[in-house]
């Protein structure tokens, strides 16, 4: 028998709270006319980072080890939904686990977007375990600069 010695990963650090506070401060101080509110502390899976501009949003989703054909991005009204399945690695078949920390199985996550979306032009790309979804606004909802008459 092979005996195994492992130590637990530290699931929480005091710095996590500082980071979450910093995130909220950045949100307050940023020049954005609006912001997308994500739950702080990344309790939900998968974790997301959201970038915005007048053109729309870019949503990065951290999903290591999904099969591309099993990832699904859909838009219903203003709800963007990501679904997928994390697959077991082939190597692990026919052996025994000594330690398991990685998540497995199916996941779904939805976020509500702050504007109407041009559904036809949504794009998604899966690279290095990050799913990048590009969500353009409908042209009528893009911010317009109003000329001030003298």
């Amino acid at each position: 028998m092979v005996e195994l010695l492992t130590m637990r990963r530290v699931p929480w650090s005091i710095l996590d709270d500082l980071e979450s506070m910093q995130g909220r401060m950045n949100c307050l101080l940023s020049k954005q006319p609006w912001s997308v509110h994500l739950k702080q502390g990344a309790v939900e899976y998968p974790a997301m980072n959201i970038w915005s501009s007048a053109e729309g949003l870019v949503v990065d989703v951290e999903i290591p080890g999904a099969k591309q054909e099993e990832l699904e991005v859909s838009m219903l009204g203003d709800i963007l939904k990501v679904r997928g399945k994390l697959d077991e690695c082939e190597l692990t078949k026919g052996g025994t686990y000594l330690m398991r920390e990685r998540l497995g199985g199916q996941f779904t996550r939805s976020i509500r977007l702050p504007f109407r979306v041009d559904g036809e032009r949504i794009k998604a790309q899966y690279r290095n375990g990050i799913l990048r979804i590009t969500v353009p606004r409908v042209p009528e909802e893009k911010p317009r600069r109003v000329a001030i008459e003298a």
Partner: peptide, 15 residues
Amino acid sequence: VDVPDGFELAGREYW
């Protein structure tokens, strides 16, 4: 981190 051109960060859950 591949920052999309012309975009600003609006929400962050991972670093």
